[in-house]
Nucleic acid binder design. Sequence first.
RNA 1: GCAGGUAACAGAA
Length: 245
Amino acid sequence: KFTFNTVILSFTKTKSMAEAQKCFQEMTELKIKPDVVTYGTLINGFCNVGAVSNAIAMFEKIIKGGFTPNIHTYTSMVNALCKMRRLDDAKKLFHDMVSKGYVPNSVTYNVLIDGYCKHGHIDDALKLKKLMAAKGLKPNVFTYCTLIDGICKVGMVSQAYEIFEEMIANECHPNIVTYSSLINGLCKAGKVDEAAKIFEEMIKQGQAPDVFTYSCLIDGYCKEGMLEKAQSLLKEMSSKGCIPN
RNA sequence: GCAGGUAACAGAA
């Protein structure tokens, strides 16, 4: 069973859902009982290729079959619905889940926070962050990255920066995604100089910029017409072993 | 038989 689960997971990671399903079938033919992980892996796999209807079908099938989903299963489904822009359905499932006695963990909150952010519902996202804190779940790097990106994207870069400061004050260490999101936000707001400062800061903090980080800043410089800066960054990234794509 | 190992969240163009 563990072997099959691992193989199925590999197929879902390479987005080969046909292979994953074949593997699942093979496993049942061998009378090996799929478990909650097997179903969870498949559901998440379907979600990641945008086949949310397959995910929902499988979710309903296992429930009808008397199988008990766990928090991972629900979280995957909530995430899928959010990514499909079906925020209301996602919220509904979240509440169903809670009313059935499941306790959302930080990933569950994070996916819903991301859903709210991607819809521009920043107030609701922040409320959810408060709620998770009230439940004793500390916002983590994912929570902060999600919020910083979301808040930047509704054009409230200075508020995003406040969240960034809050995360540092709460001893949650910014990572490459945090810095890149903030740099992107600042660049898109035309604040390339500030973005460059954050870029320096991240290096000072021992976080090596990657292709995403460089792309954000290079794009920022280009859009401001600062082409020399853009070119020197392009050179710099190659010299630091970060291959431009 | 027991224990352990497997699945869910964030960034650019």
